[in-house]
Design a protein around this nucleic acid. Structure first.
Length: 712
DNA sequence: AAAGCCGTAG
């Protein structure tokens, strides 16, 4: 199992304690709780409350306070009270006290015992708990906070401990309370509690972790920056929690991850195993494979261990963007390191072949699985069905579905939504109803994603009524729409030119309490841009940032596209600069948008310089960029240069496609060289391109002009 | 545990 070097014994070992910042940090904590943290320098709440005692370690823990030796075991809380210390007398006493103090308004003083006798009872009680080790109090607090009804009691325990000076760090106790409240989804109570005193690194960390766990990223990030302003670095567990929270909400984005990473660097934190793995997985899930692979290399090089699950995620993500060769390389590397791949690893590999349509390789992976005695699961069958569907082999897909049911592997809505999107991508949107029927026959209920695909399918084929009806049906079946549902609805209205209706839906979405995501803003920016509502575009950008969302690659491409298409080239170029300033690498898609905008206006010189700028940024010329360049020359009546680009393509092994030849024919028509068009059409056929409607139309119009010229 | 929505050509 040891694919990579052993993980370090605990996450603090990786901190460079000689760095001046850490020295400071270390000193700080020593001042606050010397006995507890004698062996754990940078101890923070987050980890204290994550650990509770296991019986075998109790003795050792009590004597040494060796926190890093504790085992993570949540089930240990309850038996705790029945062990060496019985907390019931104290809890009973405090409960009574709470009850009497709330009743005291209506009751007369005479009912209560005299102050001296009360003090005596309390004193005795306090004495009986004097030798309880700190961590046991922590566990008690944690267990009390897990139920709403005993939060008050937990608070009373802390006050009581403070009053009788029974535990060393009250700051630590408060942060445990905050942390436990966060764990129990009581963020509001956590904030209330934190207001009763100044925030210290411990309480900051507890609050940040509570926010991250409860998916309140804005608050978490704000607290981190406030903490930094106060001169404290945040605990890197917080960064892990934030990244995982982003992934949970499907909001992980390369731009935000890069910003987080810069902040980690700014806090001078060294990465631990968990955070390194989270960063790699984050970039992989965000689809930023170059960052993911770079980190993977750094982490492997630094001797931290890379988890198998992380590698599987990277393989999956590589496959997801069609990089099957690299996916296979990592898979093989796993195997070479003596790790026997299990179903999930095979599925990740399979994903890539399905994505790029390498059916043979996909089939090979499945047979390889069977040969190695690794059993396929629901995901494996689904991926295979997806592969056959994409290849148009519906019969094979159906056979696998039957095989799956025969092997007692129940299909779920996932596979049907994949089948539906296969049909959609082939233009067979009418098949939607059939898929719905087959799904019901298999006893599977449509889920939210299935309905989202259905809405998208109708939307893409301009059936807005069907799309809205599906939305209503979804609501009537009690399925909550999500951000994707709204995005799909809004975008399909934009695509049909119904910008007003789209804007209404955007407002409805927000009124319904759904928070827009990057995609929502990108859709709306595109819509306002098409309407040339530039002030509204700016407002959206401000709005988006105020919600903690950063413009991403799609945002910038959209901006460049809409500005470029309206001839606002300076604004478009400014966007490119903004993006670089924000630390995002420009992609060829962005340059393509710019080149295309120049091309459509026949500004060939500018298109060429944009092309050169793209090359200077280290980006390879794509077929798309070169086709746009051909269009730029064509529209500028420079047909000779247009054909020079074709030559360039052939020299650099880029296969011209149907768009290339159609654009060349258009270039010839511009300069009225109609007679040369048929030979271009012929070359297209000879090179193996299948002419489509636009290509045929171009040839026809050339022939028409030729005839007209002959008649004159 | 995966998937669905947004950006660039003729």
């Amino acid at each position: 199992m040891l694919l990579f070097p052993q993980p370090l014994p605990n996450r603090f070992s990786s901190i460079n304690v000689t760095s001046p910042i850490f020295h400071q940090h270390h000193q700080h904590h020593l001042i606050f709780h010397p006995p507890l943290c004698a062996t754990s320098t940078a101890l923070t709440t987050t980890n204290v409350a994550d650990y509770s005692l296991s019986s075998s370690k109790r003795q050792k823990a009590a004597s040494q306070n060796a926190i890093e030796d504790y085992e993570y075991d949540d089930n240990d809380i309850l038996p705790l009270q029945s062990r060496r210390y019985d907390f019931n007398p104290l809890l009973d006493y405090l409960s009574n006290k709470i009850a009497t103090s709330t009743d005291s308004d209506s009751e007369s003083e005479s009912n209560s015992a005299s102050p001296t006798s009360l003090e005596h009872t309390e004193f005795q009680l306090a004495e009986s708990y004097r030798v309880v080790p700190g961590p046991l109090w922590h566990s008690l607090l944690k267990s009390l906070c897990s139920s709403s009804s005993s939060i008050g009691l937990a608070y009373a325990v802390v006050s009581w401990l403070q009053k009788h000076n029974l535990c060393f760090s009250y700051e630590l106790l408060y942060s445990i309370l905050i942390h436990a409240l966060g764990q129990s989804e009581k963020l509001y109570e956590a904030f209330l509690l934190s207001q009763s005193q100044n925030l210290t690194p411990l309480t900051y960390n507890a609050l940040i972790s509570a926010c991250a766990r409860n998916n309140d990223l804005e608050k978490a990030l704000n607290l981190i920056s406030r903490m930094r302003q106060d001169g404290y670095p945040s605990d890197f567990v917080n960064y892990s929690l934030i990244i995982r929270s982003l992934m949970r909400k499907n909001r992980v984005d390369s731009a935000i991850l890069q910003k987080l990473y810069r902040e980690i660097e700014c806090d001078k934190l060294e990465l631990d195993v968990q955070l390194s793995n989270d960063i790699i997985v984050g970039f992989a899930k965000a689809g930023d494979l170059s960052q993911a692979l770079e980190f993977l290399g750094v982490v492997q090089g630094s001797g931290l261990s890379v988890k198998t699950a992380t590698l599987v995620t990277v393989i999956w993500a590589l496959g997801n963007c069609g990089r099957t060769v690299e996916a296979e390389a990592i898979f093989e590397e796993m195997r070479d390191n003596g790790l026997k791949p299990r179903t999930r690893a095979y599925n990740a590999l399979l994903r890539g072949y399905v994505k790029v349509g390498l059916l043979k390789d996909a089939e090979f992976v499945v047979s390889e699985m069977e040969r190695s005695g690794v059993s396929p699961n629901e995901q494996t069958y689904s991926l295979l069905i997806d592969a056959y569907g994409n290849a148009g082999r519906w019969e094979s897909a159906r056979i696998v579905l039957k095989e799956m049911e025969a092997s007692n592997v129940q299909p779920n809505a996932y596979v049907f939504s994949r089948i539906l999107s296969s049909y959609r991508d082939k233009g067979e949107w009418q098949k939607t109803f059939q898929v719905l029927r087959e799904m019901k026959n298999s006893g599977v209920r449509p889920d939210r994603v299935f309905y989202n695909v259905m809405i998208d399918t109708f939307g893409k084929f301009n059936c807005l009524d069907h799309a809205m009806a599906t939305f209503d049906r979804m609501l009537s079946e009690g399925i909550e729409p999500d951000t994707v549902t709204w995005n799909t609805l809004i975008d399909c209205h934009c695509k049909s030119g119904k910008h007003d209706r789209a804007e209404e839906l955007f407002e409805e979405m927000m009124e319904g309490g759904y928070s827009p995501c990057n995609t929502t803003f990108n859709i709306m920016i595109n819509s306002f841009g098409e309407q040339e509502r530039w002030d509204d575009v700016k407002n959206l950008l401000t709005n988006m940032q105020s919600q903690g969302l950063l413009p991403n690659a799609v945002t910038y491409t959209t901006l460049i596209d809409i500005y470029g298409k309206s001839g606002r080239f300076n604004d478009a170029i400014e966007c490119l600069d903004d993006m670089k300033a924000a630390g995002l690498k420009p992609s060829s898609t962005m340059y393509n948008a710019l080149i295309n905008a120049y091309a459509q206006r026949g500004l060939s010189e500018q298109a060429v310089s944009a092309f050169r700028a793209m090359r200077a940024d280290g980006l390879k010329p794509s077929l798309l960029a070169l086709n746009s360049l051909i269009n730029a020359f064509g529209e500028d009546r420079r047909d000779v240069e247009a054909f020079a680009v074709l030559q360039y393509m052939k020299e650099y092994d880029l296969k011209p496609d149907v768009v290339t030849y159609t654009t060349l024919m258009k270039a010839l028509i511009r300069v009225e060289k109609f007679d040369k068009v048929p030979s271009v059409y012929e070359e297209m056929i000879l090179s193996g391109c299948t002419p489509d409607r636009k290509a045929r139309a171009m040839l026809r119009s050339a022939l028409k002009y030729m005839k007209q010229t002959l008649e004159l």
